[in-house]
Nucleic acid binder design. Structure first.
Lengths: 230, 230
DNA sequence: TAAAAAACATTAAATTTTCAATGTTATTTT
DNA sequence: AAAATAACATTGAAAATTTAATGTTTTTTA
């Protein structure tokens, strides 16, 4: 299972591309692209930089991190697992990167020059539509997180974060957290204390089981209920 | 000035389209499209509905409104003025509309069948790229609002809302608010009382001048400073 | 146009959330 | 392997924000 997924992801971008463009055209992308490995904690695309590159995440997990210059606070807009096209923002508009994309697990990335990809998209509508659809999923998860943060308080938001992690990142109700408590706080937009207290409370109530980085959602229904009532 | 803008906006979508597709192709879109007028308060595209249509906002102002079933609370993700392509979300992914798009000023809208437009986008990469770029601006303003809400408290958020309205919606430091105090609260993610108290306070401090719906930003620098310190 | 409803405005109390202080445990670094 | 650093955990005090209560003004509806 794990190997199969890895295999799919490894050649992810090439596989997707060849459904729409010719091997010749793909070679044009390859010529100006590189395959890179990023260690946990390394920045793949940096906030404020010109959008010279688009990254295709072949394997691993990445956080979208906004860092505030004035307050120094971080916000995690969303967390995504491979396969995904990163830097979608830059694909769309020409401004400098709004936020950074940082590996929270070791990642394999196919780094593409934006303008080369862009020319191909312009010449191939089907390819463009397919890539934009892929890129837009990340906007959706950011928007959903926004809605959660805007509408719910602490516990509802933290519940939403865990539900999202289980359903869309780790694909399992039991997983090893890639994020520290501080990062979980930056994701749910609350303080570290809130995260720690809520984890302890839910542990006692039998909703989850935590042991360091290992987290298991025991009572999924209860968690969904907490999410719902906000 | 106003007339010139109106003229540009009125034929906005056709004008943009004809830069990329033929008159013949545009007629294909026109055949299944309608020109509609929406009064202030009317819903153009509804949350939860299938994404059967994309709307091009020819004139007017629209809010992106998320309504929570469980809590009944509304959140305004962003506010946009013409010309814009609405329902971009649906252009990208196939899920039902995440949020509603509601006229907050009388609007003229060119309502297009998604699948007809989609076929054209697939056959014309330049057109696809142009439309996606237009659509993505709205994501950007939603994300910026998210970042503001996540990082700043009340006053910083309200300052950001007014700065956004002046710079990106009304294009003037003095304008007639299309939003009620309640809607401003839903936009800045705070209570109505926060909005009212902050308006009074800033009025006294000479930062703004308010009289009912009329709002003038007197000290733009001060407002930017409040935004910056959060 | 009168009545009803919604919007606007202000204040104090209640609640939520963050901040500050402190200690323990786990992970890096030297 | 020891030292240093970062992460984890808990608590009470402080601060921010919402809720509730109340009244006025404006807008909508019958």
């Amino acid at each position: 299972m794990a190997e199969q997924r890895l295999e799919n992801y490894y050649s992810g971008f090439k596989k997707i591309s060849l459904q729409f463009i010719t091997a010749e055209e793909f070679r044009r992308i390859e010529k100006t692209s590189v395959n890179l490995k990023f260690k946990k904690g390394e920045t793949i695309l940096k906030q404020g930089h010109p959008p010279t590159h688009v990254a295709f995440l072949q394997s691993g997990i990445v956080k979208f991190n906004f860092s505030s210059e004035s307050t120094g606070k971080n916000t995690i807009l969303t967390l995504v697992s491979a396969p995904k096209i990163l830097g979608g923002a830059n694909l769309f508009y020409k401004d400098n990167n709004l936020f950074s994309m940082v590996a929270v697990e070791d990642c394999e990335v196919f780094l593409i020059e934006s303008n080369v990809l862009f020319e191909l998209l312009k010449s191939n509508g089907r390819f463009a539509v397919a890539l934009f659809q892929l890129a837009s999923e990340m906007f959706k998860s950011s928007i959903l997180n926004f809605i959660s943060v805007a509408n719910k308080q602490k516990e509802g938001r933290i519940a939403d974060v865990f539900l999202y992690l289980a359903q869309d990142v780790y694909f399992h109700s039991s997983f090893n957290l890639s994020l520290t408590r501080k990062e979980l706080a930056e994701f749910a937009c609350c303080s570290v204390e809130n995260i720690i207290m809520t984890l302890s409370k839910w542990q006692q109530e039998g909703i989850i089981a935590v042991a360091g980085k290992k987290l298991e959602i025991i009572n999924m229904e209860k968690l969904k209920q907490i999410s719902k009532i906000g």
